[in-house]
Amino acid sequence: MTAERVLVAGATSAIAAAVARRYAEAGADLVLAARDAGKLSAVADDLRVRGTGRVETFVIDMVDTARQAELLAAAQAALGRIDVVLVAWGTLPDQAAIEHDVAATLACWEANATSVVAFLAQAADVLEAQRGGCLAVITSVAGVRGRRANYTYGAAKAGVIAFAQGLRARLFAAGVAVVELRPGPVDTPMTARLRKGPLFIGPERAGALIVGAIRRRRDIAYIPGYWRWIMLAVALVPEGVMKRLNLSAG
């Protein structure tokens, strides 16, 4: 991996921090954005120690879409050209707890879909103008098929998946790759309340796989790859059966 210039939005996520760590250790310059200043500086300190490149931070609530352009401008100013944009923030609400709460349902939608789509659209313009770079976004296996356990979250991720597909086709001509990453369950704060089954992987492993997928400019990457086959099988389950099942996991 040659030294790259990377913008990580949602950098305090356990998965994103693991990705950033790998880039830092390979000498990358980084701009990190997150909403919690204390956590953000803890992550940035760590990357400064591990890496040799420069590490800048930007405090932003990504749901505040009006400020997203500011972040992109700051990243351009710090990095010059941007080689990789990683979109990592998200929230996983307890479906049962928000089921009858419209405000919470829409908040989940905002955190995982609206804000993400808004940012992807603006980052796409930056990379398109550069005529190159990689726009990577973390979705989820939950976005591949709606399930009882997490359909609000899953539907928001599904929206991002479709958006990314169209964006990929548009940006192809400009030489910009859109890498959409679909992790299965990962042991992070997001899944802290869930029971950990054998399919859970650690954030370090997820981070390594994500860096590999970005490097190879994969269009769609399941994290780990075997989820592709699991989701293929899940997709084949008739809806009539699906509605009687109660599949769990992120």
């Binding site: 803890a42 992550v43 300190d45 760590d46 120690v49 591990r50």
Partner: peptide, 16 residues
């Protein structure tokens, strides 16, 4: 599990 500061000249390491 994060490093905080490393003074590579003096060999002082601060970490979580």
């Amino acid at each position: 599990a994060r490093f905080i500061a490393f003074d590579a000249d003096r060999g002082l390491l601060r970490a979580e």
